[in-house]
Amino acid sequence: MRNLSQKINSEVARLYTERRNRAHQVRDERQAGLYRRHPELKALDEKLTAAGFAKLKAALETPGRQAEVSDHFRRLEEERSMLLTSLGLADNYLEPAYHCRACRDTGRLEGGWCPCRKQAVQSILPVYLPDPMDREATFSAFNLNLFEGEARAVMADYLQMAQIYTGHFDRIRDRNLFFTGTTGTGKTFLMQSIGHRLMDEGRSVVYVTAPNLFDIIMRYKRQQLSYRPDPELLEEAEMLYNAIYGWDLLLLDDLGTEMATQDTIAQLITLLDARQNRKLATIIASNQAHHKFSETKYDNRITSRLRGNFLIYPFMGSDLRLTSKEGR
């Protein structure tokens, strides 16, 4: 069974192959269209191809004719350049329009990976996270009619807030949000809608529930402390760990459902502080009110961070899951 890193690498390779094939297909279609409209261009390109072979053959078999053949090839090039100018085409009109011009959709540059590979991994990794996001969770699918009375008005404001949040993600000062409310009041759906919109705009977003978050951290720490860590398990754990610590937006759901210990409290404080110091955004959803965290599982250090570094959004209404079930 392949591990996570192997699956990711395979998906990334497939993505780059698809991009290259698409770029070449578009190039070929464009060339065919130009040849249909300008048959003289096709004829000249065919002459250039034949002259190129003749030039190579002369270099290998008849060196005495090399100057003559090269001169003929140069004149054809000049003729082609003049024709392209008259048609309003650049000399490199047959260059494929790669998604990434730097690496030509290979993912590699001389000396290492192309920066676009990180973006490719970021677009693929969420599928393999322990908590995949609901694809239906989008702003357009957010149904305010499911809410009644005051809850509907509040959720309309929250939906508008979320759209402004994503539309001005780079410029807003307060990017940490805390969604609190009882089960089934739309916290996860709105959180994931924000995530999907930012992912569509090229942002790196990781969604994870609290129990799985602490499991990821523990697996990474375990591999780090191991005398002989498994290279594949370490790479996998490091990939997930780096995502929750370093991606643009962390969506942490169901905080408070995990088994709280001194270790998990310390890990949560470290994570929140690290992301705050790096100016990375975090959105947390919990069924518990933020001011009750110190009364239940967490101490005042967590409550202080939530109050000081997060905008608090209380969600209202009854359980939408039960409401929709009763309506069926």
Rank of each mutant, 00 (worst) to 15 (best):
K292N: 14
I312L: 13
Y227P: 13
C114A: 00
A274H: 13
E11H: 06
F315S: 00
D319M: 09
L234H: 11
E29C: 06
G317F: 03
Q160G: 10
S226D: 14
L159K: 15
P314V: 01
M161I: 07
E110L: 08
E29W: 06
A43V: 11
T182A: 15
A156D: 10
R175D: 05
R275Y: 07
R27H: 07
T264R: 05
A58S: 14
R117C: 00
G64T: 11
M155A: 03
R175F: 09
T264G: 05
T85I: 10
I124A: 01
N21D: 15
K325E: 15
L48E: 09
L233S: 08
F178G: 00
D248Y: 04
R14P: 08
Q276E: 11
T296D: 13
P132Q: 02
A141E: 15
T270V: 12
D105A: 02
D299V: 07
T49A: 12
A102H: 11
D200Q: 11
N143Y: 11
L306H: 07
L144D: 02
F142V: 01
L198H: 03
H99Q: 13
W247D: 06
E11N: 06
H196K: 10
Q224R: 13
F293L: 08
L268V: 04
A51V: 04
R2Y: 08
H99K: 11
G327R: 10
L252H: 06
L41N: 05
D131K: 03
R328W: 10
R203D: 01
